[in-house]
Amino acid sequence: MLDTTSPPRAAAVPAGLEHHVFRSRRTGVPRLRTYLPELWQRREFVYELARCTLRGQNYTNVFGQLWLVLNPLLMGLVYYVLADILSNGKHAANYFSMLLAGLFLYTFFSSILSQSAGSIIGSSRLILNSRLPRMVLPVTQMVIAFMRFLPCLVVFLVVHELQHLQWGLAALYAIPAFLEVAVFGAGLGLVCATLQVYFRDFSNFLPYLTRIWMFMSPVLWELQTQLSKPGLKADVIAINPLAPMIGSWGDALVYNVSPRPAWMLEGAAWAVAAIVIGTLVFIRREREFSVRL
């Protein structure tokens, strides 16, 4: 039961013609050995679509592309004011860097989820009129989320510099921590994209879900201090998959200390599990999308 079979006898086939067989199979996992190369073949399309979409989004307003930097800065300010009021102005000197680091990474994560959720429904014409591997669509949204994250990183580096924080080798641990969040988000994003096809109001729930998840993740507070407190909250935080990833990220970038190996490993395990499950869920269902739209 394959989408595209390789010809068993080359002699009968005119040179180099593609051979497609379409059979009745609405669900079920297609052969990954043909699916993944086909997905890889569209990488230039993904990049180009992401670039064009991003450019198109801020085309018509006054600040234009400047919004890519303004957005994260303003968001950082909003949460800084909030946290400042809640803590009566008592916090560490480098709290603002800490906050921005967590906030930007979390925003990247949550925009992967929300944009992926809309990716299939939002491209119904593309789905009904072309034979793309459907995974191209959520992946494009993830690339867009990443492109939005890059200016955030620049903002963070400027703040980092202004607060005279130290750089060191341990900061490199931020890279694997970031990758964990990206892969974990990608896996969940694929699940969200699939869910949205079946439950059209899923994207209405999603913002509340991600907001609560943010408060349970070490964004507005530090992982180290909360974990040491006794009680239910520490337990909840301990099972939050994002906690070790964002915790490691903050430790590496802001404090320049190597994160605990246990945190890194836990994060990696979550990420791998999420991407495997997400991919399987998505491609098992993707043939049904065109009938469901």
Binding site: D3, E18, H20, V21, F22, R23, S24, S130, R131
Partner: peptide, 19 residues
């Protein structure tokens, strides 16, 4: 074009499809 899966039966196409 391979966009809608058939409910039964089979479609064979030889060559690059453009829609």
């Amino acid at each position: 074009a391979g966009i809608l899966p058939p409910s039964s039966g089979e479609i064979v196409v030889n060559g690059r499809i453009s829609t």
